[in-house]
């Protein structure tokens, strides 16, 4: 049943997309709220030239890279393969 498979795949993509979006939102707003509410902690100097805030800011950028990489890797392998299978099946079923 390509139609059911398609819906299933759509739901799966939607779930992963939402989860990863939520991860990014939580990480970024966590950072912003710390900047807003806990300035002393963000300004604490860990080692010469590096504060907690700067480290966390760099980690936000890393998290953006990492989440896009996770999504792209999943979509390039699992999603595209399943989608290719569905396309083939639809083509086979065509009279």
């Amino acid at each position: 049943m390509p139609r059911e498979q398609l819906k299933q795949l759509g739901r799966e993509r939607w779930r992963i997309a939402l989860t990863l979006s939520l991860v990014v939102v939580v990480i970024y707003f966590g950072f912003i709220l710390l900047v807003a509410f806990n300035k002393p902690m963000m300004g604490y100097v860990l080692t010469e030239g590096l504060s907690v805030g700067m480290l966390l800011g760099a980690l936000v950028i890393l998290a953006a890279w990492l989440t896009t990489w996770i999504y792209t890797a999943w979509a390039n392998s699992h999603y595209d393969t399943t989608l290719g299978g569905i396309h083939d099946e639809i083509r086979r079923n065509k009279p």
């Binding site: 990863l20 990014v24 912003i32 936000v60 950028i61 953006a64 989440t67 896009t68």
Partner: peptide, 8 residues
């Protein structure tokens, strides 16, 4: 960071 996190 704000301008970057729009991309994901």
């Amino acid at each position: 960071t704000g301008w970057l996190v729009g991309w994901p």
